[in-house]
Lab assay of single mutants.
Amino acid sequence: KYSDMIVAAIQAEKNRAGSSRQSIQKYIKSHYKVGENADSQIKLSIKRLVTTGVLKQTKGVGASGSFRLA
């Protein structure tokens, strides 16, 4: 599940300011076997996790910027 992968990526990075979408994508692609549409799936999952309150956006708008666990 992409949401689990995103949470794992943010936990692994341990950046106080949060993790960027690009760094999350890079982590997921190197640690998991994902399909061609992974980028758009990650983007959608990040937006969903922010609206449900699992992630907090520290910089930027939408799916860009930095995110950390709430």
Rank of each mutant, 00 (worst) to 15 (best):
K1W: 10
K1N: 12
K1R: 12
K1F: 09
Y2N: 00
Y2G: 00
S3Q: 10
S3R: 11
M5F: 05
M5H: 01
I6M: 00
I6W: 02
V7A: 12
V7M: 08
A8H: 07
A8T: 06
A9P: 01
I10W: 00
I10R: 01
I10T: 01
Q11G: 06
Q11R: 14
Q11I: 12
A12Y: 07
A12H: 08
A12N: 07
E13H: 08
E13P: 03
K14P: 09
K14I: 04
N15A: 08
N15K: 10
N15I: 04
R16I: 11
A17C: 15
A17T: 09
A17K: 10
G18L: 04
G18V: 04
G18Y: 04
S19A: 10
S19P: 04
S19D: 01
S20K: 04
S20Q: 04
R21E: 15
Q22D: 11
Q22V: 09
S23Y: 15
S23N: 07
I24L: 02
I24K: 01
Q25L: 15
Q25T: 15
K26H: 09
K26A: 12
Y27Q: 00
I28M: 03
I28A: 01
K29C: 06
K29E: 07
S30T: 11
S30R: 08
S30K: 09
S30L: 10
H31C: 07
H31S: 03
Y32H: 02
Y32V: 00
Y32M: 04
K33E: 12
K33V: 11
V34F: 03
V34H: 03
G35Y: 04
G35K: 05
E36I: 12
N37Y: 06
A38C: 12
D39H: 06
D39S: 07
D39G: 05
D39E: 09
D39N: 09
S40T: 12
S40Q: 13
Q41E: 13
Q41N: 07
Q41C: 15
K43G: 11
K43L: 15
L44I: 11
S45F: 10
I46P: 02
I46Y: 01
I46T: 01
I46R: 00
I46W: 03
I46C: 03
I46V: 03
R48H: 13
R48I: 12
L49W: 01
L49N: 00
L49Q: 01
V50W: 03
V50Q: 03
T51C: 14
T51G: 08
T52Y: 08
T52N: 10
T52A: 14
G53R: 03
G53M: 03
G53S: 02
G53W: 03
V54W: 04
V54R: 05
K56L: 14
Q57R: 10
Q57E: 11
Q57N: 06
T58C: 14
K59G: 13
K59F: 08
K59Y: 09
K59M: 09
G60I: 08
G60Q: 07
G60E: 05
V61Y: 12
G62T: 06
G62W: 07
S64K: 13
G65Y: 15
G65P: 15
S66R: 15
S66Y: 14
S66E: 07
S66K: 14
F67V: 05
F67T: 02
R68F: 13
R68E: 08
R68A: 11
L69C: 07
A70N: 08
